[in-house]
């Protein structure tokens, strides 16, 4: 009973988020990595932070309906990636020169 009423996961999640946020700022503003490397690290940090929110704060695993919840979010992410990556790919790299 006790462990379900513990603030510990929230505090752990908050500390993770703070660390990931600070790392993102350091990565973009204070390192001399090549730009492509910086962006890769930035995206990885953002995805990790998204997972921290889903697991520590939003409790996506908690309900009996967890499988459906995960599938619906995963599908949303799949469509989102298709839209963003597809748009960039077509509009920036595959536009006919004017």
């Amino acid at each position: 009973m006790e462990q379900h009423h513990s603030a510990k996961p929230h505090i752990v999640g908050y500390i993770f988020s703070l660390i990931l946020t600070v790392l993102a700022f350091v990565d973009m503003l204070y390192t001399r990595l090549p730009m492509s490397m910086k962006i890769t690290v930035l995206l990885i940090l953002a995805v990790l932070q998204f997972l921290v929110q889903l697991i520590y704060f939003m409790h996506i695993w908690e309900s009996k309906e967890r499988a459906y919840q995960v599938i619906s979010i995963a599908y949303g992410i799949f469509v989102a990636i298709s839209i963003v990556a597809g748009s960039i790919w077509i509009m920036i790299y595959n536009t006919m020169p004017m």
Partner: peptide, 16 residues
């Protein structure tokens, strides 16, 4: 999940 898709279209527009 639908909101994720909504925001993804706005992000895509921005990046383009």
């Amino acid at each position: 999940s639908a909101e994720i898709v909504l925001f993804s279209t706005l992000f895509a527009t921005y990046f383009v």
